[in-house]
């Protein structure tokens, strides 16, 4: 009985200390585990032109402009507080849409325009049947994009 108790205490304390150690490591890593930075961070912090990073946020409604060459796209990434203009030459993912999430990788130019070399779409957690949305749109009740 006492040996069982001993082993139990050993396992429990082992797990607790392991959990605390992992928590501390994750806390120390902090920012490095972040996949992208939002526009507010980009505006308030220093992002020198030589630093490559990912910018994430929503594509602002009505901001997408396609150039005549058909490949270069300009749009604005917003977190509803601050905005960062982005320019990108290449193929956009299928889910790239105004009002939807986006993650762009590239560098911030001296003029404040983010030059992206890769654009990924980040979708949200909402799943709605397509025909329901069509019906809502037809009835003028659709609140989304």
């Amino acid at each position: 009985m006492t040996r069982k108790r001993q082993r139990m205490i050993f396992v429990v304390t082992g797990l607790i200390s392991l959990g605390v150690a992992t928590g501390l490591v994750l806390l120390a890593l902090g920012d490095n585990l972040v996949f992208f930075h939002g526009p507010s961070e980009v505006v308030s912090e220093e992002f020198p032109p030589q630093r490559r990073f990912r910018l994430g946020g929503l594509v602002e409604e009505g901001s997408v402009k396609r150039n005549e060459d058909g490949l270069t796209v300009e749009f604005v990434v917003t977190d509803l507080v601050n905005v960062v203009p982005v320019t990108f030459t290449g193929i956009l993912p299928d889910l790239f849409r105004e009002g939807q999430g986006v993650v762009a990788e590239g560098r911030l130019g001296a003029d404040g325009v983010f030059v992206a070399t890769e654009v990924l779409a980040k979708h949200d957690e909402t799943y709605i049947p397509a025909d329901v949305v069509d019906a809502l749109k037809a009835a003028g009740q659709w609140q989304g994009d």
Binding site: F35, P93, L95, E118, L120, K122, H123
Partner: peptide, 12 residues
């Protein structure tokens, strides 16, 4: 790949 535009990213 079809939705995000990539097979893999090193996110958390």
């Amino acid at each position: 790949q079809p939705m995000w535009g990539t097979f893999w990213v090193w996110d958390a």
